[in-house]
Amino acid sequence: MKSFNILFWIACVAMMTLPIGCRSIYSPKMVAFYNVENLFDTIDSPGVNDSEFTPESKKVWNTGRYQRKLENISSVIAELGRAEQVEAPAVMGLAEVENRMVVEDLVSSIPLERFKYKIIHKDSPDARGIDVALIYRPGYFKPKHTRFVPLHIQNEEGEPIPTRDILVASGKFAGKKMHFIVCHWPSRYGGRERSIPMRNAAGDLTRSIVDSLRTEDPSSYIVVMGDLNDDPVDPAVRNHLKAGFSPQPEHSDSLYNATASIFLKGKGTLCYRGKWNLFDQFVLSPNFLTSKKGQQLLLKTGVFNQPFLWQQDGDYRGYPFRTFVGNWYHGGYSDHFPSYIIIQ
């Protein structure tokens, strides 16, 4: 990863020597992912499990709290690029959004409105009423085809468990054919061991999507991002998605887990009982690291964990500063930190 950082800063210095009008063409681009922790509106919608997020609920989820949530999340997205001296994310995956309207409210907020983000979203059958979405800047990503792939899983009694679809957006990104796959795999609710088979199934489905895309065009670039509810070392990621820790030859069966090195250093995107997990991962097709004409596409991988995103005191000091702990309103951002990659 050290060589990636050197390449990144060389690219930034080179960019600053270009005329201002050319910098957006040649500058490195950020792709990010953020689990925004229950971004719900205040309306009790029929058929959606959202009564917990209404003014009459124990959370007292009202317009003021909703607007503060939008301001918090949008300020994080706007700050992501500034922290790395690049532009705001060109493409960004989101998890735990209730519907398209909340994403529209997010991208039209003051910190983000100037970026003119477009939205890819579809309501999923998830029992909690949450979905994944993709926002993108149309000057950099031009989607040609999008689809939402359902994940069919069952509980121990053989009953179906409605969960989030997997979003697949294919198109041109900075002139290259690229596929963005946004996931939010089943949670560890009810116990990690009991829920492993569900995430293994999610890993298998995600891998089958990757394989079909690579069969169709082996030269295309694939980005799998999302809250996998497992760490890079867990079986669903290592054995089912087949995401390895080290760069692979271009036509290797194994994918490259760009976020694994961060986890192996003891860092993460969320903290539970004093232990850091890195659920919010980026897994890439091997050609991101294949050197052609002396260039590698992947320059840097990171977790955005600036101090303003930390809980500042109490038992959870140093944890992500979240919106709620139970029904106790904290007024923070999310229980996850965002993760990102920077592409040359």
Rank of each mutant, 00 (worst) to 15 (best):
P160K: 04
I222W: 04
M225A: 14
I181G: 04
R199D: 12
M178I: 13
K176D: 11
T163R: 00
F173G: 07
S124E: 07
S212P: 00
D227P: 10
M178R: 01
D227K: 11
S187L: 07
Q154H: 13
R188L: 03
D211I: 12
R147E: 15
L213T: 03
L205F: 02
D126K: 11
S212K: 13
Y136R: 02
R147A: 03
R147L: 10
H184S: 03
Y140I: 13
S208M: 10
S219T: 14
L167P: 10
I209C: 07
R164H: 07
D217A: 09
Y189K: 13
D165Q: 10
D165F: 08
K177R: 12
G190T: 06
T163Y: 09
K172G: 00
V149E: 15
F148V: 03
Q154P: 00
V132R: 04
S124M: 06
R192H: 14
T146Q: 13
I181R: 02
P186Y: 06
K144W: 07
L213H: 02
P150N: 08
A202E: 06
T146W: 00
T215Q: 14
S124H: 05
G139M: 05
E216G: 01
R192C: 06
D227W: 09
H152C: 00
G175Q: 06
P218M: 02
V223F: 02
K172Q: 13
E157I: 04
D165L: 05
P218K: 01
E216H: 13
H145E: 12
R164E: 05
Y140D: 14
V132I: 07
Y221T: 02
M225C: 12
R147P: 00
Q154W: 08
S170D: 14
I135E: 04
T146R: 10
D211V: 13
D204Q: 13
Y136F: 15
D204I: 09
R192L: 13
R188P: 11
L205M: 12
R188I: 03
A174S: 14
V182Q: 08
P143S: 10
C183Q: 10
P150W: 06
P160S: 11
F141W: 10
I209M: 08
A169L: 04
D227F: 09
M198S: 11
R137A: 07
A169P: 01
E157R: 15
A174I: 10
Y140A: 12
P143N: 10
F173N: 08
F173P: 05
A169I: 02
